[in-house]
């Protein structure tokens, strides 16, 4: 978006997304496009629908209506929004590495086993190759010594770095982060943000839901402010944070700073 050449391919595209839980309309027509290499930050108050939007992208939530397109391929949907082609959805999910607020590592597997689980047992990648890749990634996130450790024996920051490495080990086309540092003690936030920043710097496509405004401003190429299930304002970080137009965004930025 913005500064990229017009020929950059689209990585993730969301068109006119609606989502209700029963009678509660959470998303009321949201669209966004992330080109390859984009870092899209989504900000907004609690309950504004940020997580729901992110989870609709890989169908952890079933959209009520709308269209999700990943790398040019529309996700097949039935009229009621449920995915129509399980195999296609599984393949698309493997191309989107998701990182959760609560890490969600598998507690009965060691760190290394967590990383190679899906590459080896679902994507049928040779075990040796997967292990080699996993070790490289663990070294990258500073966990080389922890490969044989069970997640419960790691700090929150270490667990989240392992979870990021687990997502990367699938060699995804894009990453989805849902408040990756919100469950961490303040002193552990930095080490995780540093890993995410390095990913942004190497040109990885990502969509990042975050409450870390300073971080969003530094790494994002595009920022979306969500309010009550609608995009209230969006644009490059300098504009959104430096010169917010809507009163709601001004108020929101004041409340979080």
């Amino acid at each position: 978006m913005g500064t990229k050449p017009y020929s950059t391919p689209e990585a993730i595209r969301v068109d006119d997304l609606y989502k209700s839980f029963g009678t509660h309309d959470v998303l009321k027509g949201v669209s966004l496009t992330a080109l390859e290499g984009d870092v899209v930050a989504i900000i907004g108050g609690s309950g504004s629908g940020k997580s729901t939007m992110l989870r609709c992208i890989n169908f952890l939530e079933t959209p009520t209506s709308g269209q999700i397109t990943i790398a040019g391929e529309p996700v097949a949907m039935r009229p009621d929004g449920t995915p129509a082609d399980r195999r296609q959805l599984e393949r698309i999910r493997q191309s989107l590495g998701m990182v959760f607020q609560s890490f969600n590592l598998w507690t009965h597997k060691t760190v290394l086993e967590n990383l190679i689980e899906v590459p080896v047992h679902v994507m049928k990648c040779p075990r040796d190759a997967a292990i080699a890749r996993a070790r490289k990634l663990l070294a990258r996130v500073g966990l080389a010594e922890k490969e044989a450790v069970y997640p419960a024996f790691l700090s929150g920051g270490q667990q989240q770095r392992a979870a990021i490495a687990r997502a990367l080990c699938m060699e995804p086309k894009a990453m989805l982060f849902d408040e990756p540092t919100s469950a961490l003690d303040p002193e552990l936030v930095g080490e995780v943000l540093q890993v995410i920043r390095a990913l942004a710097d190497e040109g990885r496509t990502m969509i990042l839901v975050t409450h870390e405004m300073k971080f969003a401003r530094e790494v994002a190429s595009h920022v979306i402010y969500l309010h009550n299930g609608l995009i209230e304002e969006q644009g490059p970080p300098e504009a959104l944070f430096g010169a917010p137009k809507s009163d709601r965004l001004k108020q929101f930025l004041k409340s979080v700073s």
């Binding site: 952890l60 393949r91 999910r93 989107l96 959760f100 609560s102 969600n104 598998w106 899906v118 679902v122």
Partner: peptide, 14 residues
């Protein structure tokens, strides 16, 4: 923990 199952679903596990 539901998150562990969700993580597997999010990674395309059948």
């Amino acid at each position: 923990p539901p998150g562990q199952i969700e993580a597997a679903r999010a990674m395309g596990m059948p």
